[in-house]
Each structure stands twice: as C-alpha cells, then as structure tokens.
Amino acid sequence: MQDQTSSEIEQLERLKAGDLDAFEQLVEEHQDKLINTCFRFVHSRQDAEDVAQEVFLEVHQSIDSFRGQSKLSSWIFRIAVTKSLDFVRRANRKKRSGRLKRVLGWVNDGEQAAIEPEESRSALDELADKERAEILRGAVDALPENQRIAVNLHNYQGFRYTEVAQIMETSVSSVESLLHRARKNLEKRLAHYFSKNFDN
C-alpha cells in the first residue's frame, strides 16, 4: 500500500466487502472532479455524466483487482481518463464517417450544419472570457494525447504534479516536461490563431 491513510484502508475494505453505503460515499466524494475531468475531454454535460457513471460502475466491478499500489483516487481518475479518451475516439470515428457521408453527398444541408457548426468570431478586444475559454479549449484539444491529459488534470482540475504522475503512471519529471511542452504548443497555436484574427 502506498500513501494510504487508515481511513482510506478502512474505506477500501468496506468497498471490497460490497458495502453500497461506502460506495455511495465514494461517488459523492469524487463526482464533482470526476465529471469535470470527463467533461474536459467529451465537452458535453450529458456525455460527461454518462462516462462518469461508467467509471463508477467499472470501479465497483473491479475493486477486488485494485492492489493498493497507488491511491484509490488515482486509480479512479486513471479509469476516467481511459474511458473519456475511448469515448472521444468513438465520437471521432463517427464524425469521420459523417464527413465521408458529406463528401459523398449522402447528407443534406441541415445535417451538414450539425456536423460542423460555423465558429463565431468577434473583435479581439471584445472577446469575453467565455469565448477565450472556448478558444483555449480548441487549442488544448489539438494537443497530443499525453499533453492533453496532463493539462486537463493539472491546469483544469488542479491536481498536483505528483497526483498527475500517479494517474498517468509516469514520473513527476515526465509530467513537468509534458506540461512545459504543452504550454509551448498552446502559446504557438494561440499566437497563430490571434495573428490570423488580428489581420481581419
């Protein structure tokens, strides 16, 4: 066991014994951060809640296989990241087939609009925080997968480097390096975005 307090060990024992009250307590403890972690990948409330529900069901089903080599929360968030990425991959496959349909002329104009909504642009100085958050979201989504996971967990959810390292099953120095590269990539992408819009 690593970094487990006595209350965590007791909670784990109750969970392994199939105690549903202990399980509900675990859900209440992590639901906020977990749903928001999923949301950062899937970008829809409904999908985020569905994925989070699947995560908790998986935790309940596999709790016996949890050996306690990391913190319970790290294990749960690792499952959340894996499930969210699976969801995004499935959605992207669907989107690709939608694009193919459009190219082949199998969808009408209304469906085209649903597949790729037109982005609204406004003057740079009038950008509201919400719009900025959307632009940032787009830039984060374009990052390589590992950098995206690290940014989601550290910058959005506020996990410390050590916690991110545990969730991603890597070293703290790797996390630092991932976040540094992610920051550089984001700066580059955002600068490109704003330079394009600055000219307009």
Partner: peptide, 27 residues
C-alpha cells in the same frame, strides 16, 4: 497579450455542478 489572457482562462473555465441525484443513480 491576447495569448497570455487566454492562457489565464484555465482558472475561469466553466465547471459543471453534478446532478444532485447522480450518486443515487449510480447506486
């Protein structure tokens, strides 16, 4: 300046409030 301001949006990004019945539904 725009890049820095946008990178500062991590803290102000929208956060979801979980559905109050979420835990009961999972249970």
């Amino acid at each position: 300046k725009q890049v820095e301001r946008t990178l500062g949006c991590f803290e102000t990004a929208e956060r979801l409030e979980p559905d109050p019945w979420f835990a009961s539904r999972v249970r």
